[in-house]
Design a protein around this nucleic acid. Structure first.
Lengths: 140, 140
DNA sequence: CTACGATCTAGAGCGAGGTCTAGATCAAGC
DNA sequence: GCTTGATCTAGACCTCGCTCTAGATCGTAG
């Protein structure tokens, strides 16, 4: 059984993968890309040990990625946090700009949804009455 | 001035690019990939002439893509339409499945949005009171 | 001690979705 | 006829965001 530890303050990469939903590959990749705030601690043997701070950060990263933030922006954000206090205004700007993009995205998706729902309705009705034409047919 | 025609039933690739938001490159690419329902008509000189049917289809494609439908599914849909009547049930299934995915996507985005909005709030408050700690700072 | 699985590094590879280039051709205006 | 700009084809190339491989090492269970 692998140390599926309790509150021991530090997790191995596999455990972090499990709780963030990222693959171990992705975790190493994120680290290489400078997406983490600090360098990850290592055991004497060289294995990564993630703190709960790291995990918290990664969970936010996941949400930001999931909502379409590019890795480059994530990296920028990480850099800001890494350089400590004094740049909160910029962090705020970055996040808020992203929030606005997410809002726009939701709105766009809602429009798509309604277009699709409408087409779904058209087909459903067509099928309900068993063929009636008026649908998309390449030959008019 | 290029024939920014009125109702003449057929548009050149540039005009179609303008009204669909796709690039001319993308239009040719979509065609090659079999994403259009029928073969595009050509002038005697070999230039593409899109019908209003083509444009309508492309506009739907744009919406579907915008909402994350992969090109492969789009191609499948195009094939169904291309093969004419008789498969409406499958078209319906395809669209409806996508609609469900869009719904899920919207829901996910809304959750992201609220996480982000919360963080934005934290930073805003922090800035309003001019430094108070409690924010993300790599060194505890 | 031996196994065996989890992790390590460096770097190659991949799939999606286009974008861009080169070199030729077409079409419209002067 | 000549120039200019849009379009043509085939195919190379690009970015993004991982994923996978190879070959070595760690660490725990038996």
């Amino acid at each position: 059984m692998t140390t599926t530890g309790d509150a021991t303050q530090s997790l191995g990469i596999g455990e972090v993968a499990e709780r963030t939903g990222l693959s171990v590959h992705a975790l190493r990749f994120y680290e290489r890309e400078g997406l983490l705030v600090g360098p990850v601690r290592r055991t004497s043997g060289g294995r990564r040990r993630y703190t709960s701070f790291d995990v918290e950060w990664l969970l936010v990263c996941v949400k930001l990625r999931e909502s379409g933030m590019p890795l480059a922006d994530l990296k920028h954000f990480a850099e800001l946090v890494r350089h400590g206090p004094g740049n909160e205004a910029e962090r705020l700007r970055l996040l808020d700009a992203h929030r606005q993009r997410v809002d726009a995205q939701i709105e766009a998706l809602e429009e798509c949804r309604s277009v699709i729902a409408w087409k779904v309705g058209v087909y459903a009705e067509h099928l309900a009455r068993g063929e009636a034409g008026g649908l998309w047919d390449p030959r008019p």
